[in-house]
Design a protein around this nucleic acid. Structure first.
Lengths: 332, 332
DNA sequence: CTGAAAGCGCTAACAA
DNA sequence: TTGTTAGCGCTTTCAG
């Protein structure tokens, strides 16, 4: 089944060669004003719509960018996707998405599929893949922006300033004269959680305070986890005056624990979360938290990619750290 | 720049024709076991990776599906995207996404771009486009699943059982002997809002109750809107005993209004939301709400599409209504 | 400024 | 069961 109108049809109607039509419409070589007009008109009249597929076969460029994430339904990634989308759509690039659930095979499968489909670039949030897998599947010339900490360099990279965020949160408390500050981190060995913990430690040390080991507790990233852990904290003979949490869900759990223990927030217990998920502003009292700017994150991945796709940059890999922002609401 | 390994390379190495390689690997026509083995081995040894772009140019099939939504960062759509993704990825289809912000031009632009890119099918959440725009841009043969109420039929369609959801919510209250039930709808002329309102009305009438005009109020879909409108409701000489809200944000606003007015929930005011956003379970008290199953919604769009892509169905347009589910938590 | 010819990599007729 | 031939629609040499 042939396509309705091809470049030859336009050429015939305009009385020129397909070559000229191609150049007239793409502007890649100059064409006399008269010819240009005739070509344009012919194309219009016939309702000509160029086929990117055919074009791609010749040029090896598809104007498509792959986005590989663990789960597009996880609140963080849609905002990233939107940021990426907005940046690249302006230059006519489309986003093609793969959700991997963090499975190595799925990650590799999507990488492979996208490379075969000749995407012009890839943004990858990988957790299970290693550098050597990557080079096996992705040609060196395909721009790849990596957005996790575990992959060694060699690629452009975007990260969140996790440490800076919790450091700012901790200092916000310190500035109020609060010094008994506990930190609820995520499971051990979790990248973002550990970096957030480091920021807290940093701020404490800078203030001349050495956080006791007991002030640093761990929870999984859930409301239930936060509730339990902070409940335990509040039951101590010397409960903390504030908790900085590695994410908002934990912080919301902290709020619930305080409520259950009859501890008023923020007067007896200040709480700060991390991420600024939708719910943060919706809980009562509204949560003070560190915004993890996913949209901006996505935009940055797009910029890095686009700089290479449009030959605006051709140097060694770059790293962009997206700053966080303390959002002061009612809990601290 | 040619691709590293082509089908001819494999053919040469296996000592057969490219045609045979093609057929051997795709299984579209039978090949002797010996040949198959030789082809497979040659392909393996060379690290042959077929080019879907070239294949698409011949076959007119790209194994890509377009998903057009107002905003992929809006909590509802990521789950839809994931549902669609999961269903079609199983058959090797990729999802390509466009966020339109509900702009007619952007909607048309993505439709056009995707059609040109020869996507095999499209799932579209459109709010600004009309049927005639659609037929102008999308060839009749391209399967299109439409997911909004405003487009006339002629396409496969998926919808949420909005009316059924609020009807169930209302009946849940009725069953507790509560009869003074107000409904907070969205702005006038909003499809889902109006359908949800209809379900409420239906349930009331079925119970022999005629909802007074004053019992039906409108708000925009925000916490602030809900707070204001329900605050006003509670200030009346005869405040309602319950409110059913057209979405969760309004319901959360209602919770805040009740709190502000010192009206205990659910004992003096029962509140039911709609959508079951993440925050619904995180607010205090946790919100009773009607779950709007976005993931399932996405799966259904995928099924409808896939049935046509794989020639499993070839009849007139079908409509799937995704059921809602009442999630009883603490507010009603 | 314009055109002819070749080919990107694959698959579908058609023929054997 | 296999191969030959042609061509999907476009862009790019190369030549004029």
């Amino acid at each position: 089944m042939r396509q309705s109108v091809t470049i030859s049809d336009v050429a015939a109607r305009a009385g020129v060669s397909p070559t000229t039509v191609s150049h007239a419409l793409s502007g890649r070589r100059s064409v006399s004003a008269a010819t240009l007009a005739r070509v344009r008109q012919a194309a219009d009249e016939l309702g000509y719509r160029p086929s990117p597929v055919a074009s791609s076969l010749r040029t090896k460029r598809t104007h498509m960018v792959g986005l590989i994430v663990p789960d597009i339904a996880n609140p963080f990634y849609p905002a990233v996707a939107r940021g990426l989308h907005d940046v690249i759509a302006a230059d006519g690039y489309y986003t093609i998405i793969g959700s991997t659930d963090g499975q190595r095979d799925t990650e590799l499968g999507f990488l492979d599929g996208m490379v075969r489909r000749s995407v012009d670039g890839i943004v990858m949030f990988s957790f299970a893949i290693e550098e050597k897998d990557l080079t096996k599947v992705v040609p060196a010339r395909t721009p790849l922006v990596v957005a996790t900490g575990n992959l060694p360099s060699g690629h452009d990279r975007v990260g969140t300033d996790d440490a800076g965020g919790s450091e700012a949160a901790t200092r916000h408390l310190l500035a109020q004269g609060i010094t008994e500050i506990a930190f609820v981190s995520g499971p051990k060995g979790n990248g973002p959680g550990d970096r957030r913990l480091a920021g807290y430690t940093q701020a404490m040390l800078a203030a001349g305070l050495a956080p006791a080991e007991a002030d640093i507790v761990r929870s999984d990233y859930t409301v239930a986890g936060g509730r339990e852990v902070v409940g335990e904290l509040l039951g101590r003979r010397r409960p903390p005056r504030a908790v900085v949490c590695a994410n908002d869900l934990i912080a919301i759990g902290a709020l619930e624990a305080a409520q259950a223990a009859g501890v008023p927030v923020p007067t007896a217990l200040a709480v700060i979360g991390f991420d600024d998920i939708d719910a943060a502003s919706l809980v009562a009292p509204p949560l003070t938290t560190v915004a993890n700017p996913a949209y901006e994150f996505g935009r940055q991945t797009g910029q890095l990619l686009l700089d290479r796709l449009l030959d605006r940059y051709d140097g060694p890999p770059r790293t962009v750290v997206v700053p966080t922002r303390l959002v002061v609401r009612a809990t601290a």
